[in-house]
């Protein structure tokens, strides 16, 4: 019998590790991998409500980032600013419902907490040309001095709403709704073809 509680990647049918695209001197300059399994929780609340901001700090260990596009981190957890009063908490899988429960227990009724771990596909691009690949798709300012590590922005790639984060130098995570996962993977790998790209095994 199929185990319906087992998490299956949206990319499972097309994910193949190896080296693809153009053959370039020095080897591929973009590396792809799917980030999984992750715990992802959508957090909404009023940042000036002390019960909420203190609750978030208790649950994840960092203060709410209130500057648009900022990311706060605490250990392996990132708290990404999505919009005024909305954030996304992301960390390696802590087990079914565990991160959501931590936020609910700490925030009580002061915030709206939703577990969206199963609803997102997260694609990581890294390497010298990762930035160039994203520039082909999203109408954002990707200048090295603007889109720096610790910054995030929501935009669209190939008309799909995406969240793009920059966790480290020349490393980007692209979050899309699970149903758009395969399309986004195919779009991004196609865009990286001219640089040559590698696909690594999924990791958190």
């Amino acid at each position: 019998m199929v185990d319906l509680t087992e998490r299956v990647s949206a990319l499972a049918a097309i994910y193949e590790t190896g080296t693809f695209g153009a053959t370039v001197d020095g080897g591929p300059s973009v590396a792809f991998s799917e980030r999984r399994p992750l715990s992802i929780v959508h957090v909404a609340g009023k940042p000036d409500d002390k019960a909420f901001s203190d609750g978030v700090k208790t649950a994840c260990g960092c203060d709410l980032p209130t500057t648009p596009g900022d990311i706060a981190t605490s250990g392996d957890l990132s708290l990404v600013w999505l919009a005024p009063e909305r954030w996304l908490a992301v960390c390696p899988n802590r087990g079914s419902g565990v991160l959501e429960a931590a936020f609910r227990d700490a925030c009580g009724d002061s915030g709206a907490i939703i577990d969206v771990s199963h609803g997102r596909t997260v694609i990581r691009l890294s390497g010298a040309n990762a930035r160039t690949v994203l520039m082909k798709g999203a109408p954002l300012d990707f200048h090295k001095k603007v889109f720096t590590p610790g910054r995030a922005a929501q935009s669209a790639i190939s008309q799909c709403g995406t969240l793009i984060t920059c966790p480290a130098e020349d490393t980007f995570d692209v979050y899309v709704f699970r149903a758009f996962g395969q399309h986004m993977w195919e779009w991004l790998t196609d865009a990286a073809g001219e640089f040559g790209y590698s696909v690594e095994t999924p990791a958190t």
């Binding site: 648009p68 596009g69 005024p84 922005a153």
Partner: peptide, 9 residues
């Protein structure tokens, strides 16, 4: 909030 962004957003 987000600053200058493209019309298509």
């Amino acid at each position: 909030w987000c600053g200058d962004r493209a019309l298509q957003e």
